[in-house]
Amino acid sequence: KEEVSSHTSPETGIWVTLGSEVFDVTEFVDLHPGGPSKLMLAAGGPLEPFWALYAVHNQSHVRELLAQYKIGEL
């Protein structure tokens, strides 16, 4: 988790977690339908608090999209 928390910018890579999985979403930030700034709120940390607020994320196609960016496990 400490390593994930240091990845919060395009220069270091933008990493997020979901459960025990780690994702590098650097290439996706500008494609995020809610805008880059919304995704950047989660940079370096867990997606769960944000996904709890926005139910649109609880769809299979969203998880499939995220899976493409998986880089490891906590």
Rank of each mutant, 00 (worst) to 15 (best):
K1Q: 02
K1H: 09
E2V: 14
E2W: 09
E2S: 13
E3K: 11
E3F: 15
V4K: 04
V4Y: 05
S5I: 14
S5P: 09
S5Q: 10
S6P: 10
H7T: 05
S9K: 14
P10D: 10
P10W: 12
E11S: 13
T12I: 08
T12M: 13
G13M: 03
G13H: 07
G13Y: 02
I14F: 06
I14E: 02
I14H: 05
I14C: 06
W15G: 01
V16I: 08
T17I: 03
T17W: 15
L18A: 08
L18Y: 14
L18P: 00
G19N: 07
G19I: 00
G19E: 10
G19K: 11
E21A: 13
E21G: 12
V22L: 14
V22I: 15
F23P: 03
F23R: 01
D24N: 12
D24T: 01
D24W: 00
V25G: 04
V25A: 03
V25W: 02
V25S: 06
V25H: 00
T26W: 00
T26R: 05
T26C: 03
T26V: 02
T26L: 02
E27S: 11
F28G: 05
V29H: 00
V29R: 07
V29A: 07
V29I: 13
D30L: 08
D30R: 05
L31P: 01
L31W: 06
L31H: 08
H32Y: 10
P33V: 01
G34I: 00
G34F: 01
G35Y: 00
G35E: 02
G35R: 01
P36E: 04
P36L: 07
P36A: 13
P36V: 07
S37C: 07
S37E: 13
S37N: 12
L39K: 00
L39N: 00
M40V: 07
L41T: 06
A42L: 09
A42G: 02
A42S: 05
A42R: 04
A43H: 02
A43I: 05
G44P: 05
G44T: 00
G45D: 03
L47G: 10
L47D: 05
P49D: 08
P49T: 07
P49R: 07
F50Y: 15
F50K: 06
F50N: 03
W51E: 05
W51S: 03
A52D: 15
A52T: 14
L53D: 14
L53G: 13
Y54H: 13
Y54E: 12
Y54F: 03
A55T: 15
A55Q: 15
A55D: 15
V56E: 09
V56I: 06
H57V: 05
N58F: 11
N58M: 10
S60I: 13
S60Y: 11
S60R: 15
S60L: 13
H61L: 04
V62W: 07
V62L: 04
V62S: 00
R63N: 06
R63E: 09
E64K: 14
E64P: 05
L65R: 11
L65F: 02
L65Y: 06
L65P: 01
L65Q: 11
L66F: 15
L66Q: 02
L66H: 06
L66M: 13
A67E: 14
A67D: 14
A67K: 12
A67V: 10
A67R: 13
Q68W: 04
Q68C: 11
Y69S: 11
K70C: 12
I71P: 01
I71M: 11
I71R: 09
G72L: 10
G72K: 03
G72F: 10
E73P: 07
E73S: 12
L74W: 15
L74C: 13
L74A: 12
